[in-house]
Design a protein around this nucleic acid. Sequence first.
DNA 1: GCAGATACGCTACGACCCGTAGCGAAAGCC
DNA 2: GGCTTTCGCTACGGGTCGTAGCGTATCTGC
Lengths: 211, 211
Amino acid sequence: MSSSTHPEAPRTGRTGRPRSIEADTAILEATRASLVELGWSKLTMGDVATRAGVAKTTLYRRWANKNELVVDAVAVLFDELELADRGSLVADVEGVVLQFAELLGQPETKTALMGVVAESTCDEALRARIRSAIVERQKRLVVEGRERAQARGELPYEDDPEAEARNTDLIFDVVAGAVVHRALVSAQPVDAEWARRFTSLLVSGLAALPR
Amino acid sequence: MSSSTHPEAPRTGRTGRPRSIEADTAILEATRASLVELGWSKLTMGDVATRAGVAKTTLYRRWANKNELVVDAVAVLFDELELADRGSLVADVEGVVLQFAELLGQPETKTALMGVVAESTCDEALRARIRSAIVERQKRLVVEGRERAQARGELPYEDDPEAEARNTDLIFDVVAGAVVHRALVSAQPVDAEWARRFTSLLVSGLAALPR
DNA sequence: GCAGATACGCTACGACCCGTAGCGAAAGCC
DNA sequence: GGCTTTCGCTACGGGTCGTAGCGTATCTGC
């Protein structure tokens, strides 16, 4: 799966003038900048076009509406998350929690994430797009972390692959949900202290989970 | 703290024609209905006014903008959450998780919640309003649940009141965050099975937490 | 080269929504 | 009955949306 595919893809038959790659990147960058300054509701297509140094019509040739544009502009930010091997499950989880918190500290990320999720509640296509572009993509972190913990003997191996998938989903929702809620709804800092206590709660629960 | 106070309160000096209570309730109801049908971004003040059978100017006499109106329209929905005593900590948590999930299943709730949170990332006043109207208000559920569990001997008493408050915040973020993330971001059902597994994870972690 | 195809920037447009102002009428207090 | 405030209604300037049309620029196939 390459980085992010546009909804309004140009014809596969390659003839005529190709689309400007610089315009693509300029638009996505301008979208993030506009999100930071104006927020979700005040972001306009015209403003993005001006910032990108591009005609408004060029935007509409690539994205059908604001939601799709913003999803693409933000999805790439999540790809920088990485699960560095810190030697133990606890350290790995703390590390990714703090990384995720830092990502959510960036104004464009939090504004865009909540905005598109809000819109997705009335838009099935957008929901699917979010899932494939962000959610499913970042579950790799949970899978990787568990595999390492299993190799270290910190977590037991799971025979049933279906149960394993359910556990992956559960852990992902708990980690991502808690961090997002702490940072955006409760509006409290996700600092090292909080990460330590959250991780302690989670890992204790994981260790005690499979009976 | 009474249910929800309007930002544009009428003069305390009571003279002249009083505001119509029916208009108030009709507007809030119309706002929820409009959220269901149109979603956050397509909700317009004019549409709400029409649905409520009220002039648009009447809306602006009570609420300064869309965000404040929607917060008030939705905050009351969260007050119906209750922590029935089901006899054990596990049962209590499962119960409130399922209750919360049902609340988030209503379209107006999820749309409005995510929408106002998105806007609040660029609006400190709105953030404060959400915290006082929704977040702080629902922490009562965590406090109540823990007190019951302590009385039953399922959880230890905590001497340090500050540590207790931090734990309340942590648990609240984990529970609310996980349910919201599961329901709205992952877009998967929060059913009895998921509630059972989540609760198991949480309660195991809580039991093992204080050393 | 040259013709065909496509993308580009630009302008203009109707439609819609915003938030406010001004009006006469209605509904309470003194 | 007079004062005050709210009500519904209409109208308005300002802004955004998404589209259409034009001439120009760029790339491919012949």
